[in-house]
Design a protein around this nucleic acid. Structure first.
Length: 270
DNA sequence: ACGCAGGCCTGGGCGC
DNA sequence: TGCGCCCAGGCCTGCG
């Protein structure tokens, strides 16, 4: 489920339950995630959580001893619930809190990650080379333009590259390119500065709007309602192969780029 | 150095 | 109903 808006929604949902609280007990049911859950994560027991934040799709919870990093991969989710609730299949890790609740990590495909970072998170290998946050002022048309000169790969690959900008997954890459009227296959190096202006605006817009809608999910977040219902209705090209473009009626095309599905309108996107 | 396919996993949907 | 195949919202690694 998680693209950036879902990660942000998750952060907002779990943070109030974690920040200012202490993890009393760590329970690891399955340590085989993308990388093994590290042994020294046990150090989190007894250390009050000082803050929660997000960097790209990474969730960060800081303590005086270290930082808990969680990535949800393709299928991960977090819930705060009563420890008495039985473990579902694919519940892998639980953090028992002093509040009597627990944070539970669930991930069928196990592409997710749980790491324990000592020292500065921004120096961590997973974080140190990340590009700007799409909703921050550091993310600009000029930034993309400068990065893209002489790049022969596609503009879609550029915006999905976390060195360029974080948090733009396959869905929102497709959607933003549609909004900007840019053909996903276009070589990044051939996109003009004005077109990058449109593209950066579109990326900001689609992510911000989606986070807004994540707000609806926020309320019932703890009941594991899971999938936000806003999704399908909002999407203008993603997963709409052969269906008419909302703007011009032309059938939406599906192609494969770098092993991922790309959806676009062959008429509106040039 | 750069760009891309492969691989990590499970589950859902489809055609036969 | 069952089986095999394809596909999936991410991202690191290693190859050419």
């Amino acid at each position: 489920m998680p693209e950036l808006p879902e990660v942000e929604t998750t952060l907002r949902g779990v943070s109030p339950h974690l920040v200012g609280h202490t993890i009393r007990e760590l329970i690891v049911q399955e340590r085989r995630l993308r990388w093994p859950v590290p042994d020294d994560l046990i150090e989190i027991e007894g250390a009050p959580i000082l803050s929660g934040s997000r960097r790209g799709k990474y969730l960060l919870f800081t303590t005086a001893r270290g930082t808990l990093l969680i990535h949800l991969g393709m299928s991960g989710s977090l819930r705060v619930l009563a420890p008495s609730l039985p473990w579902r299949k694919h519940d892998h890790v639980a953090f028992r809190l002093d509040s009597g609740m627990e944070l539970r990590f669930h991930d069928p495909r196990r592409f997710g990650t749980i790491q324990w970072i000592k020292g500065s998170p921004s120096d961590h290998p997973l974080l140190k080379d990340l590009g700007p946050e799409p909703l921050s002022p550091d993310f600009s048309a000029r930034h993309l333009y400068d990065l893209s000169r002489h790049r022969k790969s596609s503009v879609k690959a550029l915006i999905m590259d976390s060195h360029s900008v974080v948090g733009v997954g396959n869905i929102y890459a497709c959607e933003a390119l549609f909004m900007a009227g840019i053909r996903p296959t276009l070589a990044a190096g051939k996109v003009s500065l004005p077109r990058f202006e449109r593209l950066t605006s579109a990326i900001r817009e689609v992510l911000a709007a989606s986070i807004e809608m994540g707000g609806t999910t926020l309320r019932d977040f703890l009941n594991e309602s899971g999938e936000p219902g806003y999704f399908k209705q909002t999407l203008r090209v993603y997963d709409r192969e052969a269906q008419p473009c909302h703007t011009c009626g032309t059938p939406i095309k599906r192609i494969v780029q770098t092993n991922r599905s790309t959806f676009y309108c062959p008429k509106c996107q040039r």
